[in-house]
């Protein structure tokens, strides 16, 4: 499933980039995640356990978060793969930043390819797109909270 979206930060591009690359900040921003544990021998790769979901549909997932294709401070790829609730979620998102000097905003565009298998695929059909949008918004909001007030 292809999904796209954007988010605007009222911050400088470098500051946004830095927070996007900071595992502690990512852990805090990812809904339901307490900690990212580095995977040995794999750069920019972490293991995480998460309590994920929306409202009543919520469960424990465990998976891998990986940053790659970094082109600071403009673009990188965020790959997440996790499983839980008899479902497997694999997503890869290309995240691009650009700065809108007029409005003093950093614009983040994301293009994701999400593959959902198992229970959620067969039963969550009507809501997966909206849920992904909502959770990505929560993630970027979570990151923004960790940026110094501008």
């Amino acid at each position: 499933m292809q999904l796209t979206g954007s988010y605007k930060f009222n911050h400088e591009q470098q500051a946004v980039w830095d927070v996007l690359m900071n595992p502690d900040a990512i852990a805090k921003a990812l809904p339901g995640v307490d900690e990212l544990i580095p995977v040995e021998g794999e750069p920019d790769t972490w293991r995480a356990d998460a309590k994920l979901g929306i409202a009543t549909v919520r469960g424990k997932y465990s998976g891998i978060v990986k940053l790659s294709e970094q082109n600071p401070p403009n673009q990188y790829r965020l790959t997440v793969s996790g499983s839980g609730q008899n479902s497997i979620i694999d997503g890869t998102t290309l995240i691009s930043l650009s700065y809108d000097a007029d409005n003093q905003q950093t614009i983040l565009n994301w293009e994701a390819d999400v593959q959902i298998s198992g229970k959620l695929a067969s039963i969550g059909q009507r809501l997966i797109g909206a849920a992904a949008n909502m959770m990505s918004k929560q993630f970027f909001q979570g990151l923004e909270k960790q940026l110094p007030k501008s």
């Binding site: 298998s117 198992g118 067969s122 059909q125």
Partner: peptide
């Protein structure tokens, strides 16, 4: 990817 999207009577 071969996921059955109409996997229940809801769909």
């Amino acid at each position: 990817n071969g996921q059955l999207l109409t996997g229940t009577m809801m769909d």
